[in-house]
């Protein structure tokens, strides 16, 4: 009876989960410089940053605390469809400034997750975070690398970045990646790149024998792939919302 609205069970549950977040390691803040660089980075991978949660890392911030206007940065990022959810900082003045801007505070120090429950402010709390080591550049999310054959019935998921398979991908298997998919062997199963809508994602394989290929929701089934490039090394990409197959040696 739990699915009935009269008796809905507990309103929520607290869960602790890990996810990769984009960190912006800020060295100094100048509104114009910041926006220009942001535009440039977004241009490299528009889909990647759309509606992405962002953490501002201030551990290497060299500017004056007063130069940092959190309201200003938040607005600027929002204009580009990015959402600052948290600041990683220890400097007390900056901590207070961030808090008053309604941002969550993350303690620096690598792979710690934030506590799920205690000491909450009443603001949207980001999920527990995992930094992928120091030197986080905007696009540096490590790929998932698979060295064993992907067999029928298996599903490999790279929810945040690229997927690299150094073995055959068999019929009846499925690859999913937020970014690109590289298969250094025959691709005989299904491959879905850009599952979060990244239209810049590509699929590469040494032999196209796939059951289905898809980039950002645009797909082709095996039947549509049977022409010249079947069983050849190819890359697949989107242009004007259409999925194209190109031979890899034809440049």
């Amino acid at each position: 009876m739990n699915e009935h609205p009269e008796n809905p069970g507990p309103c929520f549950e607290l869960k602790s989960k890990s996810m990769s977040l984009v960190f912006v390691e800020l060295y100094y803040y100048d509104e114009q410089d910041f926006e220009e660089l942001l535009r440039q980075k977004i241009g490299q991978a528009p889909g990647f940053f759309r509606d992405a949660p962002i953490v501002i890392d201030l551990e290497k911030y060299r500017g004056l605390p007063d130069e940092l206007n959190f309201f200003n940065i938040i607005g600027l990022c929002r204009r580009h469809n990015m959402h600052i959810v948290s600041v990683q900082v220890t400097n007390e003045r900056l901590v207070n400034a961030a808090k008053s801007a309604g941002l969550a505070i993350t303690k620096p120090g690598g792979k710690k997750t934030t506590p799920v429950c205690p000491e909450k402010e009443e603001k949207p709390e980001p999920p527990a975070k995992v930094t992928s080591d120091s030197g986080n550049e905007l696009t540096a999310i490590p790929p998932k690398v698979i060295t064993q054959p992907v067999r029928s019935g298996q599903q490999i998921h790279a929810p945040h970045g690229d997927l690299i398979v150094l073995a055959p991908v068999q019929p009846g298997s499925e690859l999913l990646a937020a970014g690109n998919i590289h298969v250094y062997g025959p691709l005989r199963g299904r491959a879905l790149a850009g599952i979060n809508g990244d239209e810049q994602a590509r699929i590469f394989t040494l032999s196209l024998e796939a059951e289905l290929v898809s980039i950002a929701g645009q797909y082709k089934i095996s039947e549509d792939l049977q022409d010249g490039d079947w069983k050849k090394p190819v890359q697949l990409h989107l242009a004007d919302g259409q999925l194209f197959v190109n031979p890899l040696d034809n440049h």
């Binding site: 064993q148 054959p149 992907v150 067999r151 029928s152 019935g153 068999q170 019929p171 009846g172 298997s173």
Partner: peptide
């Protein structure tokens, strides 16, 4: 061959 591939995947997992 397809079914063998499936069982190989199960052996691995």
């Amino acid at each position: 061959v397809r079914d063998s591939d499936r069982i190989l995947g199960i052996l691995q997992s």
